[in-house]
Amino acid sequence: MKIIEFENVSKIYTNGNNILKALDEVSFSLEEGKFIVILGPSGAGKSTLLNLLGGLDSPSSGKIIYQGKDIAKLSNDELAEYRAATVGFIFQSYNLIPTLTVKENIMLINEVVDKPFLAQEVLKEVGLLEHMNKFPSELSGGEQQRVSIARAIAKNPKILLCDEPTGALDSETGVLILKLLLKMAKTYNKTIVIVTHNQNIAKLADIVVKVRNGKITSFKEQVPLSADEVEW
């Protein structure tokens, strides 16, 4: 089943006289429950793609259809509702609130989500239950990213969107995080989209989308390898 659909989506940034086409008439659709990797060099437009998927930004033209509705046309508040109900974001830089404890960082979603998973439950899943009363600054990078994953999962979103989730981590921790992401996606039956320039991550995906100069250059389904089969 298609979960989300892009129709001729363009995103143009203007900066004075410079016009930058971050996305150029992109069309594709994503299947529910799949693991999708968007691959491309920096500046290719892959982050823009992810931001549009996540409702962080609106396209300059084109349609983004989610459950029959064009999210490109949503108001700011409707977009916020879309983000709250549909997507869970995981960033390279974790983006935890430094003044809230681990548990509180997860519980803050209670403000925007009707039926979130219990903080304790997801923290147990990511293996951080014993750290739940610590502040983010007291955790390692990998641990912080695990909190961020737990927070994204706790929302019980349809899609997990990850922007270079292992970018700030050493490769060993990165693999652990990826494994966790895959495990979580399976446990909770989530669609995952990862944006990266790391070719290795692409090997784990059901679908690999290659992006270059604002266009999709290839869209391939493949048989994924398990994380242990990949040489990191």
Partner: peptide, 13 residues
């Protein structure tokens, strides 16, 4: 940055 995070999570303005 914290407010941006909240916004991403789905907080309304």
């Amino acid at each position: 940055k914290e407010m941006a995070t909240l916004k991403v999570v789905g907080f309304k303005d």
